[in-house]
Design a protein around this nucleic acid. Structure first.
Lengths: 212, 212
DNA sequence: TCCAACTTACTTACAAGTCAGTAAGTGTGC
DNA sequence: GCACACTTACTGACTTGTAAGTAAGTTGGA
C-alpha cells in the first residue's frame, strides 16, 4: 500500500500534494464536489453520508476520502468550490465591483430562485455552522465579515453617507434579509418573492442613507 | 412492562396518554424539554443525542423515550414548549396584540441577546428544517405562515396601508431580518446590534407604508 | 524506445464507535 | 394492586475512517 501519511498522522490528502495528478482527476473531483453539494444540501452536513456522496459521484466512500482526506475536508473544499475559488484545479469567477454590486446581489437572488439546491445547501450549512465546533464555522464567520465590509463600502459609495456605524448596520440588515428570505422561500416558495423584496429594500436603504 | 404500543406500532408516548400522571411527572418532563433545548441548540437535531438529553435531565435515554415516544416526538414537543403551548401539562404565556406587538418584537430580540442558547437552537433547527423530511419542517412552515399574517395585520393597522401585497412583503422582510441577524450575531456577537437594527428597520418600514 | 520504479486512483473488507429504539424487569406512589 | 416512571441490557442499523490490495498511469534512466 502507498503510504499517504508519512508526516501527518491524519493522512495528507492527495489534493494537497504537489505531484502530478492524472488526466481525468479534475473532473472526478468536481463530480464529488457537486455530489457533496447535493447531499449536504438535501440532508445537512451531519446527516449527509459519505456513502451517498460517493454513490452520486460514481465511486466508493473510500475513494472520496482518498481525494479529500476526511468528511470535514470535503465540506471545506465544497464551500470553497461554491465560492468559485480554485480547489484542486477548478475555475474561478470574476467579482463584481462598485455600485454594480448591489444590482449583482439582486441578480444573484433572481438566479437562485431557479437553483433550489444551492439555496438549500447554503441555508442548511449556515444554520448548522453556529453549532459548537462545526467545521464550517470559520468559513461562514469569515464570509459574513467580508460581505459586510464589502456591502458597507458600496453603500457608502452610492449614498455618500460616511457614518461607519450606520453603513455597517445597513449592510448587516441587507445580508440578513437575503438569508432570512431564503429560509421562508424554501419552506413556502409561492409566498415569497425574494428579488422583489430585496430590490425594494435596497432602494429604501440607499434612500435613507442619502438623508442625514 | 407497560404496553406503550397498543394501537400505534410506533408506540404511544406517556405524554399522550389520557390517564393520571404522577405528582412530579410534569417537572420531570419539563426538565427533559429544557435539556432538549440545550442539546439540540448546541448540536442540532441530527447530531444531538438522546443520551445527552437524558443525562442533563437526570435519567437514561430510555426514560426520555418513555415520555416522548421517539426523538422526533421530543423535538416537536420541545418546539411547542418553546412557543408557550401546553405540552403534557406546562404553562402558556399570553400573546401581545395590536400595535404593541411591534414593540414586543424588539423587546424579545433584546431579551434574546441574553439567551444565546435559545437563539442558537432556533437558528440551527430552522436551518435544518428545510432538509428533506425533517420533523420540524411543518412546524416552521406553519410558524412563518402565521407570523407573516400576524405582522402584516399589525403593520396595516399601524400604517393605515391596505395594500395586501406590500404588507405581506414588509412582514416577510421583517421576519427575515430578525432571523438573518441571529445567524450573524451568533457568529460574531460584537459586530451585530440586533435590537438597534431591528428597531430602526421597523421605523423605516412603517414610515414607508404610511406613504402611498 | 523501452522498462523498472514509483504514484495515483481507486476497490473491498473491516474496525470501532454511535445512535435510536425495544424488551423486560423493578420499585413506588396513588 | 396496579399503572406509572423509570432502569438495565441489548439489538441492529449506520457512521467515518483505516488497511491492504490492484490496475493503470507517469517518469527517469539505460
Amino acid at each position: 500500500m502507498v503510504d499517504t501519511a508519512r508526516d501527518d498522522p491524519r493522512g495528507r490528502p492527495a489534493a494537497e500534494r504537489v505531484q502530478r495528478p492524472q488526466a481525468r482527476t479534475t473532473e472526478r473531483r468536481e463530480a464529488v464536489l457537486k455530489a457533496a453539494m447535493n447531499v449536504f444540501g438535501a440532508r445537512g452536513y451531519n446527516k449527509g453520508a459519505l456513502v451517498e456522496v460517493a454513490e452520486q459521484a460514481g465511486m466508493t466512500h473510500a475513494g472520496v476520502l482518498h481525494h479529500f482526506g476526511s468528511k470535514e475536508g470535503l465540506l471545506v473544499a465544497m464551500l470553497k468550490y461554491r465560492d468559485g475559488e480554485e480547489v484542486a484545479g477548478v475555475p474561478a469567477r470574476a467579482q463584481t465591483e462598485g455600485p454594480a454590486f448591489l444590482q449583482h446581489l439582486v441578480d444573484t437572488v433572481e438566479e437562485n430562485t431557479h437553483r433550489r439546491g444551492v439555496v438549500q445547501a447554503y441555508t442548511v450549512l449556515s444554520g448548522e455552522s453556529v453549532t459548537d465546533g462545526h467545521p464550517a464555522h470559520d468559513y461562514f464567520q469569515g464570509r459574513f465579515h467580508g460581505l459586510r465590509a464589502k456591502i458597507a463600502g458600496v453603500l457608502g459609495e452610492v449614498s455618500g453617507n460616511t457614518d461607519e456605524r450606520e453603513l455597517a448596520d445597513a449592510a448587516s440588515a441587507l445580508i440578513a434579509i437575503m438569508d432570512g428570505l431564503q429560509v421562508q422561500w424554501l419552506l413556502e416558495p409561492d409566498a415569497i418573492d425574494m428579488p422583489r423584496i430585496l430590490s425594494r429594500t435596497i432602494d429604501e436603504l440607499v434612500d435613507r442613507l442619502r438623508r442625514p
